[in-house]
Amino acid sequence: MDPLHQFAIKPIFTVIIGGTDVSFSNSSLSMIAVVVMVFSLMTLGMRSRSLVPGRLQSLAEVLYEFIAKMVRDNAGHDAKPFFPFVFTLFMFILFGNLLGMIPGAFTFTSHIVVTFAMAAFVFLGVTLLAILKHGIKFATFFMPHGVPLWMAPILVPIEIVSYLSRPISLSVRLFANMMAGHTMLKVFAGFTILMMGSGTALGYVAGVVPVVINTALIGFEIGVALLQAYVFTILTCLYIKDALELH
């Protein structure tokens, strides 16, 4: 069994726009499902608008306040206009990661093109924001403070490379975590099938071991799903702060 098979894109129905194949696939289905889930959580939970919240409303409020605090603490007060974007980003990644924990569901965050597209959007947006806000002063961003001028020819390229590597590290981190976790789960599940497939009593007994490991792994993977959504979001906040304050 190919543990990488779960990452394959399978078209559900064909859509072609402008000569490009943009078929609705299992990946697209997951994305739409996430949109529906997040929107339902945030609206159904707040339906009653009660002062003393119920369970769903509490969850919605906790998520809201969690991200609001994150943006405020890490990106600064001026970053309030970016709160809806950061919130959307967090919820989209978080639910994308968690949805992948359901067996058989597709994890779109395990695709580098998806995570890179998000990271690149953040990167470009943040760079544009910095240039719009600070103009040519943005160039000083690449010259470290308190460093002798003769070192600039070495340090400035390094800083530029460091800056340009942001979207790569941001997207690779999320993609690699999600892919590694899901591959591992699948590999262990494959072991179980292999052992039980042997048909012997020993095979059945030994086949339980990967199930135990997988059960523990699933808890671990849920943690990874949360952590990686958090990391992606908080780094976005830090980038926004850099763009706004330009140290």
Partner: peptide, 12 residues
């Protein structure tokens, strides 16, 4: 698969 993923990512 890139185009379809990007398209639906942007849409969703």
């Amino acid at each position: 698969t890139f185009a379809t993923q990007w398209f639906w990512l942007v849409v969703s």
